[in-house]
Measured scan of single mutants.
Amino acid sequence: VLKALERTRQLDIPDEKTMPVLMKLLEEAGGNWSYIKLDNYTALVDAIYSVED
């Protein structure tokens, strides 16, 4: 979780936006981090930006 938060902080995305999206992605992935961690957490960042749209 810390590495995911560090990555999104680099992009000026607050933890308050990151955590709900991260928890949803983890739930959808059955707790499997490998998809979320791919390409420096690209799936997480993309999911956060899609929620903002």
Rank of each mutant, 00 (worst) to 15 (best):
T42W: 11
D12K: 14
M19A: 02
Y35F: 12
E28A: 13
Y41V: 01
V45I: 15
Y41W: 12
V51I: 13
E27S: 11
I36E: 02
L44P: 00
E28Q: 12
L22I: 06
D15I: 04
N40E: 07
L25V: 04
W33K: 01
D46W: 08
L11R: 02
I13T: 03
S50V: 10
I36T: 01
L5N: 03
T18N: 02
K37Q: 15
A43R: 11
A29C: 14
V1H: 07
V1T: 08
V1G: 05
D46H: 13
V51N: 12
A47P: 01
Y41N: 00
E28P: 01
R7V: 12
T42H: 15
A43W: 08
L2A: 15
P14Y: 04
S50C: 09
V21R: 03
D15V: 03
P14Q: 04
K24P: 00
E52G: 11
K17R: 12
E16P: 05
V51R: 10
L26P: 00
I13V: 06
N40Q: 07
V51E: 14
L22H: 00
R9I: 01
L38H: 13
E6H: 08
E6F: 08
K24F: 07
V21E: 03
I36M: 03
E27D: 11
S34D: 15
K24I: 06
E52I: 14
A29L: 12
P20K: 12
Y35V: 13
I36R: 00
P20E: 12
P14F: 05
D15F: 06
R9K: 04
I48D: 02
D46I: 12
S34Y: 15
N32H: 07
K3H: 13
S50F: 11
N32K: 07
N32L: 06
N32G: 06
L25G: 00
D15Y: 06
I13K: 00
K37S: 15
E16R: 08
P14A: 08
G31T: 04
A47L: 07
G30S: 09
R7Q: 07
Q10T: 07
K24R: 14
I13D: 02
K37E: 15
E16K: 08
V45E: 01
G31D: 08
D53M: 13
E6G: 04
A43I: 11
A29H: 15
D15Q: 02
R9E: 02
W33T: 01
K17F: 10
Y49M: 15
E16Y: 14
A47S: 06
P20N: 08
R9M: 04
V51G: 13
M19V: 09
I36H: 00
M23R: 11
L11P: 00
E16A: 11
M19H: 05
Y49V: 09
D46T: 13
Y49D: 06
D53T: 14
A47I: 04
T42N: 14
L25F: 04
L38M: 14
L44E: 03
M23G: 05
V51F: 13
D15R: 02
G31M: 08
K3G: 14
Q10A: 14
P14N: 04
D39E: 09
L26R: 00
R7I: 12
E52V: 12
R9F: 03
S50A: 15
W33P: 03
V51K: 13
P20C: 10
A4K: 03
G30P: 02
T18L: 04
N40G: 08
T18G: 00
K37N: 11
D53C: 14
V21W: 05
N32E: 10
K17S: 07
N40F: 07
A47R: 09
A43M: 15
L5A: 03
S50D: 11
L2T: 14
A4H: 04
N32S: 11
I13R: 02
Q10E: 12
I48E: 00
L5V: 03
L38V: 10
